[in-house]
């Protein structure tokens, strides 16, 4: 465990806390993509199946349980208590393409053809594109309230910190070699590029995030 990875994990946790805060504070899930949230739950469930077979550390196991639990809870809130506020008409991204993309790459790029490895690879590719429905929704509505933009920023930051962690591990851990993780992770971070730019600009002007349409 290095500092970049720890900070990456923490910003991931913070992003989920921000999302829950947003839902509570505004008592609504306006501007949140249900599709992205459902994809994240699928990502966590398929990736963390190894909870039952491998033990890495207490920290690792607890975080996995935390991610599955919180993303289930968000989805539950969106589907029950705040269902009325879900902006279905703007959440129109076709996720079949994303799932298809992840399935194809999961079948082409696993390190070994075992169930767990293929599902793990699937989860990496799916995570790399799972934010797209959310970014697309943001683009079509043009504006989002502060907590939502902080949420997306924290998510992007988590991946950017992980990328730095990979460079660090590559340099200092001679046997560490995870090409699929790296490519999928860099793709994921790159998708936030545009968003980062507008986020920083809106912070500098002290205004709400507004994207060009």
């Amino acid at each position: 465990m290095n500092l970049f990875r720890l900070c990456g994990d923490l910003s991931h946790v913070i992003s989920i806390v921000l999302l829950l805060l947003k839902i509570r504070a505004t008592r609504s899930c306006v501007g949140i993509s249900l599709k992205t949230q459902a994809l994240y739950l699928l990502v966590f469930v398929t990736r963390y199946l190894d909870l039952f077979v491998t033990f890495i550390s207490l920290y690792n196991s607890l975080m996995k349980v935390l991610f599955i639990a919180t993303s289930s809870y968000v989805l539950y809130l969106m589907l029950t208590k705040y269902r009325q506020t879900y902006d279905k008409d703007h959440d129109t991204f076709r996720i079949q393409f994303l799932v298809g993309f992840a399935i194809v790459l999961a079948l082409l790029t696993p390190h070994r053809y075992t169930m767990l490895e293929v599902l793990w690879t699937f989860s990496l590719w799916l995570e790399s594109v799972a934010i797209l429905p959310q970014l697309f929704m943001l683009q079509t509505t043009g504006e989002c309230e502060n907590l939502t933009s902080h949420y997306i920023f924290a998510l992007g930051l988590y991946r950017a910190l992980y990328a730095v962690n990979w460079v660090y591990r590559y340099l200092f851990e001679p046997d560490y070699w995870q090409p699929v993780t790296w490519v999928a992770g860099i793709l994921q971070t790159a998708l936030y590029g545009d968003f980062f730019y507008y986020y920083v600009m809106s912070k500098r002007r002290g205004k709400k995030l507004k994207l060009p349409t």
Binding site: H12, K64, Q178, T181
Partner: peptide, 10 residues
């Protein structure tokens, strides 16, 4: 085996 299969990251 190699560290390929050690998925110690989240």
């Amino acid at each position: 085996d190699t560290l390929h299969e050690v998925h110690d990251e989240l």
